[in-house]
């Protein structure tokens, strides 16, 4: 007969250390994937059929130009701070014919955005961010939600409720941002 021993106990204190080690390993080796950014739908490939010129009235266009030295030209005037574009776009789109130099209605308004081949990507993103932001603000106001909520709604159109709100807010209110091919003058 064996002698009766006490139940063998394993010391559990170093377990925390092992867990810490693993935790630190995962903290260091992994990066939280960021799949966020500015979404954009490129225009369709130009084909022979719909090559017909679409006439847009001069005053409906809001022109943004950037040259190779990262200087902005907005509606014919030089501009330093790209953040100002946000308010200018809103004024232009929500004009409803009050100012003859601005758009007739949101439906007609077009934002024309043209960069140079030598423009840095950073400035391009800043400008695009402000133009899209202005539109998101306007859509959010129409849908009665905040800007952040609107962006979440627009990102998840699988939900029928989201789709409903989205359709109502976007009715006769297109986000007409026309990004022209960069000019080659003063290229990189």
């Amino acid at each position: 007969m064996r002698t009766k021993r006490g139940t063998p106990e394993i010391n559990g204190a170093p377990m925390a250390d092992i867990a810490f080690l693993l935790l630190i390993f995962f903290l260091v080796t992994t990066t939280i994937a960021n799949d966020k950014g500015l979404s954009l739908l490129l225009p369709p490939k130009p084909d022979e059929e719909n090559k017909s010129e679409i006439k847009i009235k001069e005053h409906n266009m809001f022109k943004i130009l950037i040259n190779s030295a990262d200087r902005l030209l907005v509606e014919g005037e030089p501009l330093d701070d790209p953040r100002k574009i946000r308010q200018m776009v809103t004024d232009h789109v929500m004009n409803y014919g009050k100012n003859p130099k601005m758009s007739d209605s949101p439906k007609d308004a077009v934002i024309s955005f043209k960069a140079d081949r030598g423009t840095t990507y950073e400035l391009y993103i800043k400008v695009l961010n402000n133009v899209q932001g202005a539109y998101y603000d306007m859509y959010a106001a129409r849908a009665g939600v905040t800007n952040k909520q609107w962006r979440d709604i627009a990102s998840d159109l699988g939900d029928p409720e989201n789709k409903r709100i989205y359709t109502i807010a976007r009715k006769d209110f297109p986000m007409a941002i026309s990004i022209a091919e960069p000019s080659k003058i003063g290229g990189s």
Binding site: N34, D35, K36, G37, L38, S39, L40, L41, L42, P43, P44, K45, A115, D116, R117, G118, T119, T120, Y121, E122, Y124, I125, L128, N129, E181, P182, G187, S188
Partner: peptide
């Protein structure tokens, strides 16, 4: 940040060509 728009635009033109029109500028 420092990439010039010329290259970005060339890439976008190719993407249009193959009909991959949904893009996202990760920021």
């Amino acid at each position: 940040k420092e990439v010039k728009m010329g290259l970005v635009s060339d890439v976008q033109l190719e993407l249009r060509e193959v009909n991959a029109r949904k893009i996202l500028y990760t920021t």
